[in-house]
Amino acid sequence: MINLRVMLPEGEQKFREYIHDLRTNPSSQRPDLNNKPFSEEFSPVVSIDEAKCFNSKMELAEYLQNCFDQAGLSREEVLPRNGLWTWLAYVWFDQLAPITNPDTNERDIKEDAKYICSSDYRDYYRHLVSGPYSIYSLHGAPNSHIFLYSPVNEHNDFIEQFASRQFIISHKNIVEAIYRLYFDSKKRQPKEGAQARARPGNIRRFVRVIQQFELTYDIYTMSSDSILDLLPPEFDGWKK
């Protein structure tokens, strides 16, 4: 176990350099950033299991929610702390950017914003640790499953299409409708074809329709049942 820390600007810079180095030199050594001036301990003390492996984003988010709950911390106290999320990505980097070729130590490394928590409105939701926590702490189980079913190192289309849109991700009833439409709770994964652009009522069509509803109805007061009832017939196949 290790006490939660907050990455400072110098630590973020070192972490960013390490990520960049790995792209050309997979054997680069991870720098020790668990000390000043690279990071500082978070207050109050929160214990984090740096060796814990997560099978899905959902597991990771549940674990963090539990850690913060035990420390008496609310989501509004931790969410804006970008350095905290960057440090968590640093601690769990081996599973967020796993080795794909053991012979060469080559890793599955994605863009910086997946590891360095950004204030940029275009990609804040893409961070591989803060993104799942932000969704789970707001929508809980089971509705978060539609976004958090995938492995911790994979960004998925449900996050990209829905979580990037403030109006959608902030409305619990819309998220519940998305879960009911597109998630197969028996298989614990999205229904097949939900992301296929050619399928009627696919997730991109849902976004377009909700954007029209947003300017027509007071969505906030509607139940997920009412939202589903309003959808045009192209979505009927997904309601089964």
Binding site: Y124, I135, A163, Q166, S170, D218, Y220
Partner: peptide
């Protein structure tokens, strides 16, 4: 007619 003010940012929304 009902009147509401909503405060929002990213995932946050309060009516």
């Amino acid at each position: 007619a009902k009147v509401y003010v909503e405060a929002y940012y990213r995932t946050e929304l309060k009516r």
